[in-house]
Amino acid sequence: MTATAFAWAFRNDLAALGEAQQAMAAWLEARGVPEAARSRLHLVLDELAANVIEHGHAVAERGRHPLRLALRLGAAAELVLLDRGAAFDPRGRGGTALEGPLEEARIGGLGLFLVEQLAQRIEYGRTPDGWNETRVTVALPDAPAAPG
């Protein structure tokens, strides 16, 4: 299969994440990736990047730091997110599903739980020049129809 890769650089704010999502969705749709897989990748990018934006940098630094997204399609989809926020290894940090009663329930922290449920594999490393590199593999139920 022809190597198919998508790359997008954006800043650490949620509006820029929204633009990255639109660009990734259009790229995946053009390659015939089924909706179920597109939706999973949307969720993985959303949760990882929103975590960096909300917790990886100080609120006063919103919009000032780069994130880099790379996506490769093969037998599975591999999504790589690079960020320069505080070192954070997301593996095993998802916790458990919600439990009642409502008044005592935690209200945040569900994003990594969802990523763990959807991902085949999550890898993490800190690069020597200070980037978090999070690599998530997501199953592709059907092979993409039009590589390139």
């Binding site: 949307h42 969720l43 959303d46 929103a50 919600l98 209200i107 945040g108 994003g111």
Partner: peptide
């Protein structure tokens, strides 16, 4: 069409406020 964890957090906050 799609709901992520921040959407769920928004719903839970509403449920708590109403309760």
């Amino acid at each position: 069409d799609y709901c992520g964890s921040l959407g769920i957090r928004m719903m839970l906050a509403a449920a708590k406020a109403l309760q």
